[in-house]
Every structure is written in C-alpha cells, then in structure tokens.
Amino acid sequence: MIEIEFSERQKQIIEIVKKNEPITGESIASLLNLTRGTLRPDLAILTMLNILEAKPKIGYFYNKDSSEYKNNSLKMIKIDNIKSLPVVVSKNTTIYDAAVTMFVENVGTIFVVDEGILIGVISRKDLLKSSLGGGNPGDIPVGVVMTRAPKIVYCKSNESLEEAIRKIVENEIDCLPVVEEKNKELKVIGRVSKTNIINYIYDSF
C-alpha cells in the first residue's frame, strides 16, 4: 500500500470538512480566504482518493472509512508508473477515421503525430463540434479540428501524479500526452488519463 502525506492546505481542507460537513466548496474557500478555483485541484485529489465525498447541491463530506495516509506524497508517484500506450493517428487521417479509432480503442482523446512528433490532440468534444459544422467527415483532415501546439497540455515521465492531476483539473481535460522533448519537438511515448489515475489509486489503496 502506498501512503500519502497531504499538503498543509489539503490537511486544512480535511479538518474543515470534518468539523462542518456537509460544506460547499465555496464555504471551504471562504474559510481559507481563497478562491474556489484555487481549491479545485486539492478538492479533486481528496475526492479521487476517497478522503472526501462530494454530493451535488449538498457539499463535501469526510469519508470516515478512509485510512489516514502518511509518509510518501503524491509527488513521489511518477507518471512513468501509471502511463499507458498512446493512441495516435497521422496528420492525414480524416475526421471519420479518427472517430472510428477513438471508438475501437475506447478512448476519449487521441494524439495526432507526424513521424512520431506530436502536432495535435483531438477529443470527443472536438469531433462533436466538427459534426455540427457540416461537411463530409470522410473528406476533412483532423488538422482542421485538432488542438495544436502551443495550446497542447502535456506531461513528462518524470513528473508527479500530483502535477498530472493538477493539469487535468485546471485545464478541464480528460487526458494528457506523455512526451519526450528533443530539439524543441515532442515525441509521444504514452498517455495518462483520468481512468489511468483512478485505476492506479484504486489498485494502490
């Protein structure tokens, strides 16, 4: 079992919820003199770890059945330990074929590469937008709808699980490409998604 040492802010959040449950995120932020947005990554981490339970329109509860984690922190768990194989398509792939790949591979995000170098990212939302725009998806290349650099949010193998969670939460995305940077180019070597993170935490705890 991996043990977790929470940050001081996360410890404060846990104590506030213990004393005031149910309590909304806005109320927690007010007690800490912070904005709700500032607390989002911390609340997401504590909820994913099952330390807190969130109920819509009610607030956060402390999970009394959760263990008290100590010693190692989320910063000690590296992306290299949880990444999975990337799902990629070439820059010449059509929107239709990209949608088929997404369905067959059962993923919500695929990466567009040119000779292994990351040049774009496509999500289910991107494909939905393209379907509303008209045109034949079998004729339109993925480059028309993909998110391009420098707007691509990514991570590296030596980054921590905590950092990956923060990037996913703060950017409101489901998946990050894991890359190696060489000569200012990004080579895709993996992916880390909400599913990766949840499965890893479930298996570890």
Score class of each variant (00 low, 15 high):
92 N>W: 09
6 F>G: 06
116 G>C: 09
38 T>S: 14
189 I>Q: 04
50 N>K: 15
175 C>E: 13
155 C>V: 15
158 N>V: 01
9 R>H: 01
55 K>F: 11
49 L>K: 03
121 V>D: 04
89 V>F: 07
205 F>Y: 11
88 V>G: 04
155 C>Q: 02
147 T>D: 13
199 N>F: 02
168 I>Q: 01
191 R>L: 03
22 P>C: 10
82 I>L: 15
179 V>H: 10
9 R>M: 13
1 M>V: 14
25 G>P: 12
180 E>W: 00
157 S>Q: 11
151 K>F: 15
159 E>A: 02
131 S>L: 13
18 K>D: 09
75 K>F: 04
181 E>M: 04
28 I>L: 08
190 G>Q: 09
28 I>P: 01
26 E>C: 00
54 A>N: 12
156 K>S: 05
65 D>E: 14
139 D>G: 13
196 N>A: 09
204 S>M: 13
78 K>A: 13
4 I>W: 01
119 I>R: 11
67 S>L: 13
94 T>E: 08
154 Y>F: 15
133 G>P: 01
3 E>H: 09
12 Q>D: 13
22 P>Q: 10
159 E>Y: 00
137 P>E: 05
145 V>Y: 06
136 N>A: 12
50 N>A: 10
80 D>T: 08
194 K>R: 14
167 K>F: 03
59 G>P: 08
110 I>Y: 02
110 I>G: 09
142 V>C: 08
28 I>A: 05
102 M>P: 13
148 R>Q: 11
82 I>V: 12
155 C>I: 14
185 E>W: 00
94 T>P: 09
163 E>P: 00
73 S>M: 07
204 S>K: 10
85 L>M: 11
79 I>Y: 02
108 G>N: 12
198 I>C: 06
82 I>R: 05
81 N>K: 14
120 G>H: 06
97 D>G: 05
33 N>F: 06
